[in-house]
Write a protein that binds this DNA or RNA. Structure first.
Lengths: 191, 191
DNA sequence: GAATGTGTGTGACTCATGCATATAAACTAG
DNA sequence: CTAGTTTATATGCATGAGTCACACACATTC
């Protein structure tokens, strides 16, 4: 296929199809592990990765849910013994911490996610995977910027769910400066 | 980044993040146009592309909904004047056809989808886009096969929604044999 | 033409969520 | 130190998309 406009339309279309199917598979696989609604896996992973002991409000902004929705979610998670509410220093706040079981579940979620994603990559050669990674990094940076702009333009928009929900920070190489999203955020300003 | 196992984990992770965010943006953009639930845009596009005048049952298997769920969806679409139920030859069946308004809405959905996808590609050079397209084609073919296997193994699984929902057939080059999903399906057997 | 299969619609319910509101703790001022 | 405001959590009620079980209409076959 030549590098015509039509080949770009093909690229866009295939990107749409693949994103949809990859996200679908990831979500269904992961929701089967913590069958407490679409947000439950994201909540567990967020806590596991960087938000253990955080408040309900923090959780709600990660997930893009209302506060009350998040309260109910935490109720469900607590009923399953995946999290516990413990008092924070701030007397009105609550610290939501993962239980042992919750930590194991979060780990299983991440593992399932990676398995699902690896299967999508399985048909590629190591070279192709490396090239793909570079391209995806570029795209992710662009989308991160686009999202930030949208947020600053449309002031009273619905709260957006966190871009990196379900991400495995270690796999992404966030601490080594390899996470494209984190890099964009650092060089501009807000999350 | 060297082609180590860790770089593959990075690739997998970024693929997950990007798929999620691209699918999210696509879905929210598109659901805003036909605000009748998550399946409404997919239904309109499916009809627009290849299922105009199809039965409720056909629609339900495309969307991965139960029959009754699809009936309710068609009710909603009809209430908005986007589709109409007309009698089919088969007296018990019903032919769901797009109205003029429905056709326009479907076209707007496709257009919005493409805009959203194009923005994700905007940071890439033409060469990168072409290379990406080849890689995505390969992955899409692999995922299509994986899905087919899962379906044949887990016999009584939940019905899977259609892989190519929201796809623009013309953009994909389906008729020219450029659609990777269609090509896999043709060389093996069922949809 | 009676039995069985296929397609559609309906009533009752579920479940995740949002909105409005209540309550409680923490700051801030006088 | 008390009063008012802000911040955090929780709760009642509503909603919307979907499922399940069932009923009905037409078809097909023996």
């Amino acid at each position: 296929m030549p590098r015509t406009t039509s080949s770009h339309r093909h690229a866009a279309n295939v990107l749409g199809a693949l994103s949809l199917v990859v996200a679908d598979r990831m979500n269904t696989a992961v929701e089967a592990i913590a069958a407490l609604g679409p947000s439950a896996p994201a909540a567990l992973v967020a806590m596991h990765e960087f938000l253990d002991g955080g408040s309900v409000t923090q959780l709600s902004s990660m997930l893009g849910l209302t506060h009350s929705g998040t309260v109910r979610l935490v109720d469900r998670l607590a009923a399953e013994g995946l999290v516990e509410r413990v008092g924070a220093q701030d007397g009105r706040a609550v610290s939501v911490v993962l239980t042992q079981r919750g930590r194991r579940t979060a780990a299983r979620i991440l593992q399932t996610r990676e398995k699902s994603l690896a299967s999508a990559l399985s048909a590629l050669s190591p070279d192709e995977i490396d090239n793909l990674a570079v391209t995806l990094d570029t795209m992710l940076a662009a989308v991160t910027l686009a999202r930030a702009e949208e947020r600053s333009v449309h002031t009273s928009d619905r709260p957006q769910p966190w871009l990196c929900r379900l991400c495995d920070f270690a796999a992404c190489g966030r601490s080594e400066g390899n996470c494209p999203v984190n890099n964009v955020v650092k060089t501009s300003n807000s999350s």
